[in-house]
Design a protein around this nucleic acid. Sequence first.
DNA 1: GCCGTTTTCGGCCCGACTGTTTTCAGTCG
Length: 575
Amino acid sequence: MDKRAAAHLLDTIATYLELKGENPFKVRAFANAARAVETLPGTLEEALASGALAEARGIGPATLEVVREYAGTGRATALEELRREVPPGLLEMRRISGLGAAKVRTLHAQLRITTLAELEAAARDGRLAALSGFGEKSAQKILRGIEFLRRTSGLALAHHAARWGEEIRLAVAALPGVAGVEVAGSVRRRAEVAHDADLVAGTALAPAELGRRLQAAVPALGVAEAPGGLKLTREDGASADLYAVAPDRFAAALLWATGSAAHLERLAAHAADRGLTLGPGGLEQDGEGVRCRDEAALYAALGLPFVPPELREGGDEVARAAAGTLPRLIERDDLAGGGLVHCHSVYSDGANPIAELAAVARAAGYGYLGLTDHSAAAAYAGGLREDAVLRQHAEIEELNRGWPDFRILKGIEADILADGTLDYGAETLARFDFVIGSIHSRMDMDRATMTARVLRAMDDPHLTILGHPTGRLLLTRDPIALDLDAVLAKAVERGVAIEINGDPQRLDLDWRRCRGARDAGVMLSIGADAHSLPGLDNMDLGVAVARKGWLEKTDVLNTRNREGFLAFARSRRQT
DNA sequence: GCCGTTTTCGGCCCGACTGTTTTCAGTCG
């Protein structure tokens, strides 16, 4: 069991306690404990054995016992009891925006509602609106929320699916009789959400025997035979398809399982133009299979350069490959000497002191850390009042004296207020090396008002980067209503960079808009939006979005060195 | 439930908005 599973368990208990109407501070204690577990260094087993978990801030006797029991037995008595008391359907309802624990409790107590279907019926037939504390608008909002849940059901954030896929990959790779195994599907294409994980294994073993060996190696895994291979399930419901093929079919099977369907269709059409047949079984010429030792060889047999999985979405990538004009996509190494931008420290709602963030960024090869705590308006996130800004800047200057080759930049994530002005006055904004402007409140404005708000913020010469421009939270909240074309045009006109936020729940700007933005002359900036040390790795997810959006190194602001980055910020202020 | 001590209880993040009310509970970030 890993830290994330333990954290998820504690979070689930917190939600059940909340639905039960427990003391809110007790609820928060479990949620805090979840965060404490998640941000623990080392593995969970090590932390349990060394006593580090027991010592961790936020972990007390009760939460420690929950984790200990789960790690030891795979069971959680506390959760099992809560499940008997609180209908699990309430947990689903809690995910609807506008439905907090108190309202869910009311619905359960007054209308005996325990499922989404019952909730929908009550919202439609007027029973819900008749309840005290509810009204017609609540009913409509809830119906919209149910629709959103339906639309996103069965989907997982891609980085969760990727982690789960990687666990399987490692387990399968270690089995005797397996020549190779890779994660495929939308996870390999670096999509933002995924239905499940897909893997391909090259092996001479029959699926049944492969399943037996895998089951013996990982007893907790659900293993069943399925067409072409195995269906794998985890106790929390996550599933994965593992396709088993003969080793000499591996490349073709990997290509096919990676998709997308639209890419394969174009690739098959390209093959047909050349007198070849491409199908699930591989490449054929005159009825004879064409042997390809890997995917690159398969593309080469089609007269094409290797098409990176991120680009395989069925746009014009096959045509561009045929013309030899695929981009040289940005890579993680292109950020060496560049900036790890958009980080939160303990000054606002981050978990780590500035020095720790900076040390990790420096060790990872970055040339600077773009520190951006929240501004004062974000009171919920401990946003910095002006005196705290001064204290933070003094600390940064002191830290910056400590290293010759690295700098912390004084940034801020300033709230874009309802009227489109940036939080803080011009005098305070001018103290920062750069400013990310983001919307965190009043997300429900109509499109015209919201667009005017964002455009006005972009007129402020202190604004360097527009943060998470659409405000979406994947599988949780739709994007704000915004004329993105107008925003991108303004970004070009005013020299504002647009963020690619690497938080796995955001991945915003959407990759689908990156290429067009770049072609229009927009500068993009990859941001981690890190709130802890593990969050610094969000940069990799941001790079994946940029790659999927056809971006090259020069399209991304923070591939520039410190002087280049600062020059970009300064140039706005001088116009 | 956890923390921290002023060390075994009292405090724990809070301001703004929304939809409901007609003064405010609930939700959100």
